[in-house]
């Protein structure tokens, strides 16, 4: 299991990286953390003519707070996210989700931008990006553009990025003060990709639910924002009956596939179960009545 021959470049700037990407005309691959790409290359399932390694572009690794958002340089390691005080404070849902990403040695190398650009529908970060309505900045030969989470994911391992574009930044709105959150995941082993995962955030306003956010991992070819379920909560609050109704709706909103680990029906069932667990935990102990 050794990769095929390839040309290797480790540019120091995004501009250089874009120039190289243009030069290979779709035959090159971007190497970020490598935790998904390198296994595919070792299996020779991915056979790029060239690798453009972003690991030497220091300017792509940062976490910045601006304008009510947290902006993550694409090459920010998942491990950095995990231990970032500002993430713990402003995006605790992302922090909790990070603990489900592989294992610590994987998170040492894996990056937030790489995980999202790889677009594995069972991965945690795409679910969080979708739940929180985040966006990504993308640079290419035609300049920079911003893609909303809802526009980003096309299908398995496929985004709307063009082959000559690079995802440079991930932007997530900071969670409102007092928001509750939970990331629930069911996998057959610790550290595996989710059979189903649910990212949830709720903002309570007394007995009401001002804002609900729910998105899936593993319940279809792309992460699914469960908007119709969120609406039930925003209308009826966070009591048991509302959660019951919302999660029943959630199960109808997903179209999971079957594989050797789980049937489609089981994934649909888990969507409901995990959404309920996530919502109860996000809503906190006071929300059960009503």
């Amino acid at each position: 299991m050794k990769p095929v021959k390839f040309e290797y470049h480790a540019p120091a700037t995004v501009d250089e990286a874009l120039a190289l990407l243009g030069r290979y005309g779709g035959e090159a691959k971007i190497l970020a953390g490598g935790q998904s790409l390198m296994p595919l290359m070792n299996f020779r399932l991915s056979r790029p003519a060239a690798l453009i390694d972003l690991n030497r572009i220091a300017s792509l690794a940062y976490i910045r707070e601006d304008d009510g958002h947290l902006a993550f340089g694409a090459m920010t390691r998942q491990r950095t996210v995990e231990f970032s005080p500002v993430v713990a404070q402003r995006l605790p849902l992302l922090r909790e989700a990070t603990r489900w990403v592989g294992h610590l040695p994987i998170r040492s190398r894996g990056t937030i931008g790489g995980s999202i650009a790889h677009a594995d529908p069972a991965a945690e970060y795409p679910a969080v990006l979708t739940a929180l309505d985040g966006e990504v900045r993308v640079r290419g030969p035609r300049g920079e553009r911003v893609l909303k989470a809802s526009d980003l994911f096309v299908t398995y391992l496929t985004t709307r990025l063009e082959p000559d574009e690079i995802l440079t930044e991930v932007r997530l709105p900071a969670m409102p003060a007092g928001a509750g959150h939970a990331f629930e995941e069911f996998a057959r082993r610790h550290g595996d990709f989710a059979i189903v995962g649910i990212a949830a955030m709720v903002v309570r306003d007394g007995g009401r639910c001002r804002q609900a956010r729910l998105a899936t991992a593993g319940a279809g070819p792309v992460p699914v924002r469960l908007r119709a379920a969120e609406e039930i909560l925003e209308r009826d609050g966070l009591g048991d009956r509302a959660i019951e109704a919302a999660t029943a709706r959630a199960a109808e909103l997903v179209s999971p596939d079957a594989d050797i680990h789980a049937s489609a029906d089981y994934r649909r069932h888990l969507t409901r179960v995990l959404a309920a667990r996530a919502l109860r935990r996000a809503a906190g102990p006071g929300a059960r009545r009503g």
Partner: peptide, 8 residues
């Protein structure tokens, strides 16, 4: 800690 089999 990191995996040395998926790093060049």
């Amino acid at each position: 800690a990191a995996r040395s089999c998926i790093m060049l």
